[in-house]
């Protein structure tokens, strides 16, 4: 049963929100698209809380801001804002593609990037690209501000490194280097509204046909999305045109099994992940060949 003494709080400033969190244990409400479903499905959803804190009126964390070296994306920026942002499309195409792949138009109009990451599902579509772009999460509490690599932020499915007195205010993404490419692929049951079965975010820097940097982050393949460092080490420094996409696909599938072990879903995920890696490398080769 829901506690009748629970209180509803609404903040319009980050400072106000962190002050409320310093004094109360509050469940944070962002766009509501996960919150409202969980609230109805999980009887103990608000157990142990003093109330709900609504973040949807805090305009200062609904902005995408460009600085000299990085872009800061407010936690309350919606997936739709990301899809529509020329800045994101230019610098972080994989992030724009992943945001566009989430849910449906009405979901994207409401669901926020901060909510997607704090909910921390293994299939959270924006998580892979944020890790691939080496994003950092900015967390605020009444005691100050700290940042954390997005790759460290999610600890386990539905568990993050955020403290109870903190709110996630933004993500800071370094601007991509000259010659950077990125892509996002997703496999779901159907195009709209399908939860991701498996996905792959790629960010690569190519110089004179050589892979200088590469981040390969599959989603829904491991409990928490992570860079596939063995495959990355395998291809970093090599001529892109000399890489065999099929071989990389097979190695990626091996690396996944190295992390997860053989699971009930492995017979599906092994060839699916291999295909995503093969496609990603092939696309990269084609794109670089076409752009000279």
């Amino acid at each position: 049963m829901m506690n009748k003494d629970l209180k509803f709080y609404k903040a319009t400033k980050v400072d106000e929100a962190v002050k409320l969190l310093a004094d109360n244990k509050l469940k944070l409400l962002a766009g509501g698209t996960d919150f409202m479903v969980d609230l109805r499905n999980e009887e103990d959803f608000l157990n142990g809380y003093d109330g709900i804190l609504d973040l949807s009126h805090i305009d200062e964390i609904k902005k995408i801001i460009e600085n000299d070296e990085h872009v800061e994306i407010g936690a309350m920026v919606t997936h739709r804002d990301i899809v529509d942002s020329d800045l994101i499309k230019e610098y972080y195409p994989a992030l724009a593609q992943s945001a566009g792949a989430i849910g449906s138009t009405p979901i994207r109009n409401r669901a926020t990037i901060g909510g997607n990451i704090c909910n921390a599902a293994a299939c959270a579509d924006t998580l892979g690209p944020l890790i691939a772009f080496e994003g950092r999460a900015v967390l605020k509490s009444a005691n100050g501000t700290r940042t954390m690599d997005v790759s460290e932020f999610v600890k386990w499915p539905y568990e993050t490194g955020i403290n109870e007195d903190e709110i996630l205010v933004s993500f800071i993404l370094p601007k991509p280097e000259e010659g950077a490419y990125s892509s996002f692929q997703k496999i779901g049951r159907r195009q709209a509204l399908a939860i991701t079965r498996i996905s792959l975010a790629v960010k690569a820097v190519i110089e004179s046909g050589v892979i200088k940097e590469i981040n390969l982050v599959p989603g829904s393949a491991t409990p928490v999305p992570t860079t596939f460092s063995k495959v990355e080490a395998e291809i970093k420094g090599k001529q892109l045109s000399e890489i065999d996409p099929k071989e990389i696909g097979e190695k990626a599938a091996e690396e996944m099994i190295g992390i997860t072990g053989e699971r009930w879903s492995t017979p599906y995920k092994k060839p699916a992940l291999a295909t995503l890696f093969r496609r990603a490398i092939k696309n990269l080769q084609e794109e670089v060949a076409n752009n000279g």
């Binding site: 509803f8 409400l29 698209t33 409202m36 609504d54 739709r80 109009n109 409401r110």
Partner: peptide
């Protein structure tokens, strides 16, 4: 429509 945008009214608490 919520300020002109299509949204799912089952996923929004009225307080918002």
């Amino acid at each position: 429509l919520f300020d002109g945008e299509a949204i799912n009214s089952c996923l929004i608490p009225t307080v918002q």
